[in-house]
Each structure stands twice: as structure tokens, then as C-alpha cells.
Design a protein around this nucleic acid. Sequence first.
DNA 1: CAGTCAGGTGCGAAGGGAGT
DNA 2: ACTCCCTTCGCACCTGACTG
Length: 212
Amino acid sequence: MKNKKSPNGSAKQPDINLRIASRVRELRALRGASLDALTAQCGVSKSMISLIERGEASPTAATLEKLAAGLGVSMAALFGPDDAAAELEPLSRRSDQLIWKDPESGYMRRALTPPNWPTPIQIVEVHLPAGARVTYESGARKPAQEQQVWVMQGKIEVTLGDQLFSLRSGDCLAMRLDRPLVYANPTTRAAEYIVAICDPAPIQLIQARTTT
DNA sequence: CAGTCAGGTGCGAAGGGAGT
DNA sequence: ACTCCCTTCGCACCTGACTG
């Protein structure tokens, strides 16, 4: 739960933190929830949410996932577009894709889906270092979300509730996000995998922007 | 009441010293 | 040179007080 010092000292990620900040603030406003209300829903302290919304904290994947669950969205929705006036761009170039690194586990995720494209499908590329483990404790969401994990390289273990799945290169696991979820790389080599998430929240966000 | 700030806690990484 | 142990440091995260 508690953080480890990042390998390069203070690995601040100002751009991505500011993007997460505006996304959390926007999603919370969209739901008309106060800091207290969101605290009650996700279990992250009011002060921590406030820090995240100001871009002054580098939250762990576990904290972001709790926040996302409290807001009723996938984690991918927290990395969404920060420019409401941006044109619809169907092509996401490798060099433009947003990368976020979990300061706790070293887990690195790259958002592949074009950021402003109105789709419920979010595709994410993940690099999971050797020995790393990422826990998502929140379980069920409303509306229900589904995702599929396709391993490109290495081996990973996915624990959904009390079910353990060992995946190797080429394997694809489909799951409904209704139980706590753990990704682990028990090997001594980094693993790479693709996650396809079905989440209507980004569309709701774009629709809300266009109607305000 | 919503949001911010200050101070404190717990944890792992890094670094240094001692022993082999 | 290597390993073990201890201390220090930096960070996420928390509680509770404070402000408007």
C-alpha cells in the first residue's frame, strides 16, 4: 500500500498528473459529488483527493483504481483527453501516446486509443516489470465494465476474486470487473500485455462537455 | 459545508560501516 | 569482494485543524 521511493529519486510526472487532476475534477463535478462524498465512495482520503485534483500528488495505481471505482469509471477514463475543443482524431501515433508509470510497482501503461475518439473501447499497452504486482481492490462498478487481457510477451498471473489465471505469450483472458483484481509478474523477466476495456464513461464525458 | 494545509506515520530504497 | 545490519531519506497517504 505504502509507496516505495522511485528508482530515479523523485519521479514526478507533472504532465500526466495534471491530466489526471483535471479528469478527476471533471468527473467528480459531472456527478455533483463533494470531496467528502467521493471519500465515502472510494475510501481515498479527502486530502489525498484534493492533492490529486491539484496535480500535487503522484498517486499509485491502487489509489487511482479506487478513485476510478468511486467515480464509476475505468482507470483509462482518468487518462482521457484534457482538451475539450480538440478535433476528433482517429489516429493515435506512437510518439503522441500518453504513458503513465505507477510509482509503487514500476507498472507502465500506454494509452493506445485516440484520446478524443468517442468510443467505449479503450486499448492500453502495459509493461509489467519482473516481480511486480498491482492490486485493484474495488471490484464491482456501475455500469458494469468488461476487459480482455492479451499477453504479448512474458508470463503474468491474473487473480480475479479467488480465481487465478496463469497467462503466457499469446493467451487472452476475458473478464468482468466485478471482483478484486490482481496482476502479478512472478518471473524474472518483464511482461508486456494489451488490455482492451469496455467503458462508456469517456463518451459520457464528451457528451457532457458538448451539452455545457 | 467544501476545500486546503500542516504535521505525522509507515514503508522501501539507498548508503555506509562492520564483520567475514 | 561480499554480505549483513543499521540509519537516513523521500514519498504516498493519513488525520485533524483551519479557512472562506
